[in-house]
Amino acid sequence: MSNSAPIPVVVNGAVGKMGRAVIKAISEAEDMQLMGAVDRDRWGEDVGEVAGIGAVEIPVTNNLEVLMAELAQGQQLGVMVDFTHPSSIYENIRTAIAYGVRPVVGTTGLEPEQIASLAEFADKASTGCLIAPNFSIGTILQQQMAVMASKYFDHVEIIELHHNQKADAPSGTAIKTAEMLSEVGKTFNPVEVNETETIAGARGGICGENVRIHSVRLPGLIAHQEVMFGGLGQVLTIRHDTSDRVAYMPGVLLGIRKVIQLKSLVYGLEKLLF
């Protein structure tokens, strides 16, 4: 264990499935200390009991700003981990940065102009911020493999599949993947025929350089993504499946450790890996 003081962390969205997994992971990390838990449900309950790890003497609260102020008064740089909802995430991040707390964000649904605004705000405050559409190391590797393959294929489509409680579509991971493919410098899926959709949306949505994304929402799924490339006589499918939310925890813990070293906003966990 390091001789330095542990990193103080507040988890926003602590009662959700991802939040509970983060609570457990932080409680097991020797270089971190859970300092608070925020959610709109189960106020006053011990968040350790909620997460299934036993009492930790930290109640769930609904006041993020109070906890940010408390973290700001500490001698150690504080971190807010956020897995909440697209409707609140922008203000959550601004609140944390305003108090000098470093956000580590897995909530998706931010618009590009919102990310640009937050990046400007973080720069002015010289405060690190990590926004990652996906914290799974396997997904990051999938994206890198897709970029490699995209240099040799002109046709590609993305299929993302998630549980039916996910609020935004397409997923932030799928959008990020399409954006990364678009950065290789070519437009995909050249027109071969004049298509007609007999049902609107049947061919999915278009992102970046004509990359189509299809979203599936069903109970029983967690998080899955296929990137399919087509060429003459062949199809290459690069697929990643998540069977347990524990898959995201190494990336979340890495993000917490790295964000306190940053002075600006970083979008994408891969920027801290490669």
Rank of each mutant, 00 (worst) to 15 (best):
N3E: 11
S4K: 15
A5T: 13
A5F: 14
P6N: 13
P6T: 14
P6Y: 07
P8L: 05
P8Q: 14
V9I: 13
V9C: 06
V10S: 10
V10T: 11
N12C: 11
G13A: 07
G13L: 00
V15W: 03
V15N: 05
V15P: 03
K17M: 07
M18T: 04
R20C: 02
A21P: 00
A21Q: 04
V22K: 02
V22C: 07
I23M: 06
K24L: 08
A25G: 06
I26V: 15
S27G: 08
S27V: 02
E30G: 09
E30I: 12
M32I: 13
Q33D: 08
Q33M: 12
L34S: 08
M35S: 08
M35G: 08
A37Q: 02
A37C: 02
V38W: 00
D39F: 01
D39L: 01
D39A: 08
R40S: 08
R40Y: 14
R40Q: 14
D41T: 13
W43Y: 13
W43A: 15
W43G: 14
E45M: 10
D46Y: 02
D46E: 04
V47M: 00
V47S: 01
V47R: 00
G48L: 09
G48S: 13
G48C: 09
G48A: 12
G48Y: 02
G48Q: 10
E49S: 10
V50S: 10
G52D: 07
G52T: 04
G54S: 05
G54V: 00
A55K: 14
V56I: 15
V56P: 01
E57T: 15
E57S: 14
P59I: 03
P59A: 15
V60Q: 05
T61V: 14
T61Y: 05
T61C: 09
T61N: 07
T61P: 02
N62I: 03
N63D: 15
L64E: 10
E65I: 05
E65T: 13
E65A: 09
E65V: 08
V66H: 11
M68H: 06
M68Q: 07
A69K: 15
A69E: 14
E70N: 15
Q73D: 06
G74H: 10
G74V: 01
G74W: 00
Q75P: 05
Q75A: 10
Q76M: 10
Q76G: 05
G78T: 07
G78K: 03
G78D: 09
M80E: 12
M80N: 14
M80Q: 04
M80D: 08
V81M: 01
D82W: 06
F83W: 10
T84N: 07
T84I: 02
T84R: 12
T84K: 04
T84D: 12
H85S: 12
S87E: 14
S87L: 09
S87I: 09
S87H: 06
S88N: 08
S88E: 11
E91F: 11
